[in-house]
Design a protein around this nucleic acid. Structure first.
Lengths: 363, 363
DNA sequence: TTGAAAGCGATACCAC
DNA sequence: GTGGTATCGCTTTCAA
C-alpha cells in the first residue's frame, strides 16, 4: 500500500485563497512586502490544511553551501579518530547541503591547539568544531570568530559563558561519580583511593575530579581520596607518579584514571605486582586496554563515545546554520560503562572497522 | 567563507562526453537501452569527476510515498512509549519521503499480538515494524507478509532465520552477563542468586537467561543459580514467586530481574525486610524505580534504550525501502548500565519530557 | 502589494 | 540507442 494522501503544498494554499504562490511564500516566511491581512489569511489556511514544506524542494532551491572546520588534536588517536569519523558520518548523511569539511590537526591538547585554531580562523568558515582546552585562553578567540560570523561548536569539553552555539561532551562529573561508585562497590573496608587527571585547566578534567570526590564523600565515606595527580597526558610523568604513589604503605586500594593516559599507570602497577589487586577504573577504550579488562585486571572503563560526540556536534551545528540560527542545547552524553561482560560490544570497533559498526556499537 | 566548489552533476558528465543527460542517467543507474560502451564511458567519467547525486533533487523528483505500520503493545508503557517516540522521531527527520505511520496497539506480548499483526497485514503496508514474541508463531506470518512485498523490521527482539529485513534490539545475552558481573562485584562469598524472567518463548528473554548463567559460571563460580522463574509479565505471579523464593533459608543473596516487571518482586522484598540487603539488578527504567536506585536499594538497572531502538528500526527500514533494498544489519545495542550516580542523566526523561531530551540522554 | 515565470538537479517520457 | 524536455515543490526575480 503506497501512501495515498497527497501532501499539501504552497500551490494548494494559493489555490484555496485565490492568491499566487509568491504571496504564499512571502506570507509563510514573514518576508516583507505582504499585506498584513493576506499574511494572516495565508498563515491560517496553511495551519488549517496542515501544510508541511517539502524539504527536498526547499533544499534543492536554496542550494546551500557550507564550509566547516574541525580543529582537533592528533593525540590521543583512539579518542579523536572516532570523533572525526563521527563528524564525517554526520557530513555524509547531511542531505540538501553541499558541505565541505576541513580538518585542522595539532599534536596534542595544550601543545599547538591555539595555533591551529588561529590557522583555521584565517579562512572564514561558516562553522567551526573544536575542543576548548584552557577556557580562559579560548574565550577571546571564540568571541573574535563569532563576531566574524562563524558559528562555533565545542566538542569533548565545554566552554560555558562564551559565544559558542552549542557543545557536546560526555558528562564529566557523572563520569567521575560513576567511577567512585564502581570502586565503592568492590572496596568495602576503610582504604585510600587515588585519581590521575590530565590538565586541571581543562574544564572537563576538573569536573571529573569534582564528581569523583563528591560521590566518594556521599556514598563511600570509608574511602579517603588522596590529592589529585596531574599528569598532563605525559606518559613519563604519569608513570613516575604512579610508582611513587604505590610505594606508600599501605598503598591505595583503588585508582581512577580520568584521562586516556592510563597505560603508564597500569604498567607501573604491573611492575609493582599490584595489577589485579588494586581496583582500577579507567577512561576510554583502546587496544591495549582490552586484555586487561578481559582478565579482570581493570574493573571497568568509562567510554566517552567519541564517535557519537562528533556526530552530534556536526548535526547540531548544521541545525544551527541551516535551520534555527539560535543556540543549540548543551549535550552531555551518558558515558558507557564497559565491563568485562559487555566489552565485546565495544572492542570490535577498535582498529579495522566499518563506520556502521562503530556507530551501532557506540549508540 | 561559503564553500566555493560547485559539485558535479549529470549535466557536467553529459557535457564532458557530448551525450545527453538522459543517457547519463540511464548509464549511471544501469537502466536498459544504453550501449554497453557508452555506459562504461559514462560510469568512468562519473567516477573521474567524483559525481555525487544531489539527494534533494533526487528525492524531489522521485517523490516517494511510503506507508509503514508499527505493531506494538501498550504494556509495558515505559518501554514501548519511548520506543514509539523513537519511531516518530525517525519519521520526523526523514527527508525526501512522504511517510505515513500507522500504529497498531494490543494489550501485551502474548495477549493479542498475533491478532494485531494480522489486522495490520490486511492493509498492505510498504513496511512493518513489530516485536516478534514467540518466533515459531511469527515465522509463517512474516513469510506471508514478505511475499506480499512488505518489508518487515523486528524491534525489541529478533526473529532470526525469518524473512525480516533487519532487527534492532538491546543485546540480550550481554545484558544478562552484565547483570551477573555486577552481582559478582558485590557478592564475594558463596551464595545463591535467582533470575526472574518474562516469557521463555521470547528469544530475547531466553538470551538474557543464557548470558546470565554463562557469565556466572565463568566469573563467579561461588554463586549458584537457582532455576529461572517465569512470571509472564504478570505482577501477581511475580509477587507470589518472589515471596516463596525469599522464604528459603538461606535466601538468595542476589536477584536479576530480566523483564520490566520488577516492582512486584521489589515489593515482596520490601515486605520481607530484605530490600537493600539482597543485591538486585533490574531491567529498564521507570518512575517507581528511581527512588530505589537513588537510595541504593537497587544496585543497578539495565536500560534497553527503547527510544534509540525505535529510531534505528525505522531509520534502517527506510534505508531498505528507499535505498538499498537488501537486508539491513542486525543491530544489538549495548544496554546502558544505570547506577545511582548516573541516574540523573536518564531519570529526567521519564514523564513530561521533550523528545530532544530523551534522545540526547539515551544516546 | 501582488502575480507570473524562471530555475535548482535528477528522472522519465516521447520522439527520432 | 539516444536526445530533448516536462516535471517534482519551492524560492526569487521581474513586471505590473
Amino acid at each position: 500500500m503506497t501512501n495515498p494522501e497527497r501532501p499539501v503544498g504552497v500551490k494548494d494554499i494559493a489555490n484555496a485563497l485565490k492568491v499566487s504562490i509568491g504571496t504564499v511564500d512571502r506570507a509563510l516566511h514573514n518576508r516583507p512586502g505582504v499585506n498584513e491581512k493576506t499574511k494572516a489569511l495565508v498563515q491560517k489556511k496553511a495551519k488549517e490544511l496542515g501544510y508541511q514544506p517539502n524539504l527536498a524542494a526547499q533544499a534543492l532551491k536554496l542550494n546551500r553551501r557550507l564550509a566547516v572546520a574541525a580543529v582537533l588534536p592528533k593525540h590521543i588517536a583512539h579518542f579523536f579518530d572516532p570523533l572525526r569519523d563521527g563528524i564525517r558520518a554526520a557530513a555524509a548523511s547531511a542531505v540538501g547541503v553541499n558541505l565541505t569539511l576541513e580538518f585542522f590537526e595539532y599534536p596534542r591538547l595544550g601543545g599547538g591547539d591555539i595555533e591551529a585554531f588561529q590557522r583555521a580562523m584565517q579562512k572564514q568558515f561558516d562553522g567551526m568544531i573544536f575542543l576548548p582546552g584552557d577556557v580562559r585562553k579560548y574565550d577571546p578567540l571564540i568571541r573574535k570568530v563569532a563576531e566574524n560570523g562563524t558559528a562555533v561548536m565545542c566538542v569533548g569539553s565545554d566552554a560555558p559563558g562564551t559565544d559558542r552555539v552549542g557543545a557536546v561532551s560526555a558528562h564529566a562529573s557523572v563520569s567521575g561519580a560513576v567511577a567512585a561508585e564502581l570502586l565503592s562497590h568492590t572496596l568495602t573496608s576503610k582504604a585510600e583511593v587515588a585519581i590521575f587527571s590530565g590538565e586541571l585547566s581543562t574544564l572537563d578534567h576538573v569536573e571529573k575530579l569534582r564528581g569523583f570526590a563528591a560521590a566518594l564523600a556521599v556514598i563511600a565515606p570509608h574511602l579517603t581520596l588522596l590529592p589529585a595527580l596531574e599528569s598532563h597526558d605525559r606518559p613519563r610523568e604519569a608513570y613516575g607518579q604512579a610508582i611513587e604513589l604505590m610505594q606508600r604503605k599501605p598503598h591505595p586500594a583503588g585508582i581512577y584514571i580520568s584521562t586516556a593516559n592510563s597505560m603508564p599507570v597500569l604498567q607501573a602497577l604491573e611492575e609493582l605486582g599490584l595489577l589485579g589487586k588494586v581496583k582500577v577504573v579507567t577512561t576510554d577504550l583502546f587496544r591495549e586496554l582490552v586484555p586487561l579488562i578481559e582478565t579482570g585486571k581493570v574493573l571497568a572503563t568509562l567510554h566517552q563515545r567519541p564517535f557519537t560526540q562528533g556526530k552530534l556536534a556536526l548535526e547540531n551545528l548544521l541545525i544551527y546554520l541551516l535551520r534555527d540560527r539560535r543556540p543549540q542545547p548543551v549535550v552531555q552524553l551518558a558515558p558507557h560503562v564497559i565491563f568485562r561482560m559487555n566489552l565485546a560490544l565495544f572492542a570490535n570497533q577498535i582498529g579495522s572497522r566499518t563506520d556502521e559498526e562503530v556507530e551501532f556499537a557506540e549508540r
